[in-house]
Design a protein around this nucleic acid. Structure first.
Lengths: 236, 236
DNA sequence: GCGATGCTTCGATCCCGGGCGAAACGTCGG
DNA sequence: CCGACGTTTCGCCCGGGATCGAAGCATCGC
């Protein structure tokens, strides 16, 4: 009863609807001001400020002051992963807050998970990475194979620079809507940025949802090596 | 603000200290009666009963009636994984409830995570499985290689029977104390049961902690194929 | 049957914590 | 220097929910 991490504190933090809404909004990966958080959560500015103070105190959120604005964002990938895991459990065990409407379906198809892509296409992308031998399991989790490294370097990603950060290069994040893994970690973030930069997909306002351009999903999947352009030697 | 799973409900459920204590106690994988839960949480029997009713209603816990006793346990592996993920976040971001005492150190070294082994030795075991080519990444996550299958079958595990369940055979569960993966899934549970059966380790009362017998940890690691007995051909 | 035991329901109490508006604080733009 | 804006702090209200004891239901042992 008295050992282990203080899980109750996190629970109360997440348990309040207003705070949960703020967290959900921040899970889009964007940095929001206190006023924007208040609007997202449907509460007054003062209450939102109080909630953000609590989230800051618990280190779930970090703040970046810019003039008279205070931009809040999720503290780090580990926080985002745990929240995502909770969302997965909630989706399975409980129910959604809204009956599956059009926006919900769009979010299941493609969304941002903190700083990388999630949803149907993202899980397909991850599956192709594994099947193509670009990503494989390691003792520390999952990692980039030599073939995968040359592949992404050829696409212009500075893999060496990504590795210098303390953040792991590759992570398999369990997709809450698909129940299958998608690519997270520094590489996942870099791939998401690449997809946005090349116009394969586009973010919708402050929401987490992402819409793919025509052919965008195919282009992303081709990046995993199975498609037409620049076919690369895969082992197996 | 209005899309996505209802994460707040889970938060309030976990947020109450009494419920969190009950959940933590149940995370040992054992089925506890309402009275035992009350003792673990330090509340009266009636309050514990109310909390268990809420956890049942949210499907986080299932109950099994046996005479006049009602045995409660975590509803399934997915619930346990999400709770474990929350514990990991709490351990990193917040703090533990107790200053790292002896019991805490013991739990970090070896413990039960719902129905499989976690902690230092468990992560080493997983690392050897991967390095030995017995377990590898698949498009669905992580899976047993042909070499791994023959290995575990040779040790007397009925892998085919494990596969028939809807539960995935292999899962990489992120260890909250080690920050590295350990083996979960049906195979993880089977291996944990095997270790108990062969006397490699022993459970301590109702706690989650596990103590290894002399040579027990080595025996477990040898099961991953690197040790002395019955060396098997590994690919790579 | 008849008490003991385990558990749940009920009623009553009480307190923590979210909520808002008003005012204070800090910053920006003249 | 002053007003506008974003944000935080303060004071107050209020409701939900956690808690317990006692009573009501089951089940077991005899």
């Amino acid at each position: 009863m008295k050992d282990g991490p203080d899980i109750a504190r996190l629970g109360t933090l997440i348990g309040d609807p207003a705070r949960a809404n703020i967290i959900a909004a921040l899970m889009a990966g964007r940095a929001l001001t206190a006023g924007e958080c208040a609007a997202e959560a449907g509460v007054s500015a003062s209450t939102a400020s109080g909630h953000l103070a609590q989230l800051l105190d618990a280190r779930l959120v970090v703040v970046e002051v810019q003039g008279r604005h205070r931009y809040h964002r999720i503290a780090g990938p580990d926080v985002a992963e745990a929240i995502e895991a909770l969302m997965g459990l909630a989706a399975r065990v409980g129910l959604s807050r809204t009956r599956p409407g059009p926006r919900d379906a769009a979010m299941r198809a493609a969304r941002f998970c903190y700083d990388h892509l999630a949803g149907e296409t993202a899980t397909l992308f991850y599956a192709r990475l594994v099947e193509g031998g670009l990503v494989a399991a390691t003792s520390e989790g999952v990692g980039l194979t030599p073939a995968g490294r040359t592949r992404f370097v050829a696409e212009g990603l500075d893999v060496a620079a990504l590795e210098t950060r303390s953040r792991p290069l590759c992570r398999a994040c369990l997709d809450w809507s698909e129940r299958r893994p998608h690519l997270a970690g520094a590489l996942g973030a870099a791939v998401a940025a690449l997809a946005l930069r090349r116009g394969w997909c586009r973010r919708d306002g402050v929401s987490r949802t992402v819409t793919f351009a025509p052919g965008g999903a195919e282009a992303l999947l081709a990046l995993a090596g199975d498609g037409t352009p620049a076919r690369i030697a895969t082992r197996r």
